[in-house]
Amino acid sequence: MSQIEQQLINGLALGAIYALIAIGYTMVYGVLRFINFAHSDVLMLGAFAAYFLAPLSERVFGPQSITGAICVVVASSALCAGIGMLIELLAYRPLRNRPKLAVLITAIGVSLLIEYTCQHKAVFKAETKPFPRLFPSQDFRFGGLAISSNDIVVLLVTVVLLGILWFVVQRTRIGTAMRAVSFNHQAAALMGININRVISFTFGLGSALAAVAGILYAMKAPGIEPLMGVQPGLRAFIAAVVGGIGNLPGAAIGGVLLGALETFAGGIPGISNYRDGIAFAILILILLFKPAGLLGRVQTEKV
């Protein structure tokens, strides 16, 4: 019995990370209507930023201090926010009024560029690096249940970030502008909204979330390498679509759902070898019954 509860906890801890990544995909899709393939690489850069910043913070705050960890996370996300905005400025903005598919290919190009540059022996190298421990971790036992402090941190951080994000999108001026841009570019521009600024902000926010997700992911599995973002990135992309792409709560729900599905599928003998496929199969089923995702609205085409 405790096995099912244990799996639920495992699934939630994994799904929370997917949710954070999925939100980045969905936000960019909301304002620009294309899938930012480079998002998963920003996640990897976030983990590497923390990898290089951790020794620095250790010197200032001492080993495994909470303050140090927070500083590392904030600095890494700020760095990644900058990288995300830079990618948008250099690679996507020149193609703003071009076919969406051209932007998509550029995004794939940017993704390959980051991955291969980071694998180069003069940059990070291809090998797996041990991710430092940012703060002390502990495993708690409740009867038959095991919860690692990392899992609790992941859940807490996700919930807090989702709350902040909700506030930003719903209650601030820039958030309102984001919603306006996602609703209609031209109308928003006519209302005096600086579209470039809003899009840039969206990329920054999404990339910062990706960086946090990357660090949480690296804490969960402390071996980082330049392709570490590909797999969670793909999963999060699916989660975003399942939730209804462009829909923020949808992305969060999709992420948690996918995490739970994967965890349960992994735990069943005879099915665990199909784990990669099962998650997809169930998601396809969901999409067949809800063609615009769980929370997405079906748009009737106007004639």
């Binding site: 244990q6 799996q7 069943i268």
Partner: peptide, 22 residues
């Protein structure tokens, strides 16, 4: 007692390990 699988490159194995432990 138990045979489970993962995909090389996975980062989360708790689903399988929970069953193995049981």
């Amino acid at each position: 007692v138990s045979e489970l699988d993962f995909n090389g490159g996975d980062k989360d194995f708790k689903g399988q390990l929970t069953t193995i432990k049981a």
